[in-house]
Design a protein around this nucleic acid. Sequence first.
DNA 1: ACTATTATTGAAAATGGTTTTCATTATCAA
DNA 2: TTGATAATGAAAACCATTTTCAATAATAGT
Lengths: 159, 159
Amino acid sequence: MQKRCRQGQSWWQPKFQGRGYRMTVPRQVILEVLSGTEKHLSAEDIYLAVQKSYPHVGLTTVYRTLELLADMGVLFKFDFGDRRARYELAEEFQVKKGHHHHLVCTRCKRVIDYTEFIDQEKELLEKTERGLMEKYDFSIEKHLIQFYGTCGKCRKKTV
Amino acid sequence: MQKRCRQGQSWWQPKFQGRGYRMTVPRQVILEVLSGTEKHLSAEDIYLAVQKSYPHVGLTTVYRTLELLADMGVLFKFDFGDRRARYELAEEFQVKKGHHHHLVCTRCKRVIDYTEFIDQEKELLEKTERGLMEKYDFSIEKHLIQFYGTCGKCRKKTV
DNA sequence: ACTATTATTGAAAATGGTTTTCATTATCAA
DNA sequence: TTGATAATGAAAACCATTTTCAATAATAGT
C-alpha cells in the first residue's frame, strides 16, 4: 500500500542484539504494525496487516515473534474472552497510549481502555507489589487489571 | 471413594430453578467438587474428580456446566497462561477462601492466592468502578487483578 | 566482502482444549 | 402420570496455536 521507511535504527534494535536475537524484516514489520495501532490486535489481525507490505511472512512467524516479544516484555498478551489472544505494545513502547487498563464487555467483547484513577491505582499497586514480593519471595514483573461487565449498547439490546 | 450425601437442599437449588434451569445430578456433583477444593481446577481436573463418584458424566457436560455457572456468576474462569481455563467458585460461594487475588509465576504457572492489601484494593476498586460506570455507561460486574512474575523456586533454577 | 555458524523462516501437519451435533434421557410443572 | 423441553453424552468438528523440518538469512570473524 504505502512505502515503508526503515531507515532509522529503531529503539528495538539494541533490545534484540543484546540477547543474541537477530533483527529481521518480519520482526520489524510486526513491530511497526503494533506501533501504529491503538487497537488490541489478534495474531491473525497482525498477520493480515503484515502481509500487505510483506506478503511472504507466515502466520507461524507472527506467532513466534509475538511470543518472543512477550517474553522480552515488549508487548503484553491479553485474554478478553473471545477465544484468541490479543496483543498490545507495552506502554513504554507505545507512542500514543499511556498506562491504562481495560473494561471488557462480556457480551460483545468490546474493550475500552481507561486511564482514569490510574495514578491512585499505580500507587496502591506498587505498595502491594512490594509487600507481596517480600512475603511470597516472588519477583513481580507486571500486573493485570480488568473490569468485566456490560456496555451500554449491549444493555439496551436485551432490555 | 467416599459416600456422597446429597440430602440437604443446597444454596444453589433456588439459583437454578429461578431461571428455568434444572438441577441435575451432574451439576450437583460438579458444584460439590468445586466447593470442596481450594485449588484452581481445569475442566479436565473437574471431569476426573466428578467421574470418581459419577462415572457417566461426560467432559462435554462439565464444559457446559462450567459455562453456565460462569454466566450465572457462580464461578470465575481464569487464564493463568497454561493454555487451559481454570475455575474457582465465586467468593460468596466458597467456604474457605475469602476475597483474594492471584500471583502467577510465568515460568512454572504456579498460582498463589493472596489476601493482603485486599481491603485497600477493594476500596479503591469500588471507587474506580463507580467512576468508570458513570463515565463509560458500563455496568461493571466483576474485576480481575493478577500479578505476574517469577516465584522463588524458579528464580533459583536459572541463577 | 567472504564464510561459517546458527538463528530464523515458512509450509504443512499436528496438537489439544473447547464446541457442536444429534439422538437419547431426565427433570419439572401440570 | 404425562407432556414439554432442558440436559446429557459420545463422537465429530473446530480452530487458535505449536511443532516439525528443510531452506534461508543475519551476524561475527576473517
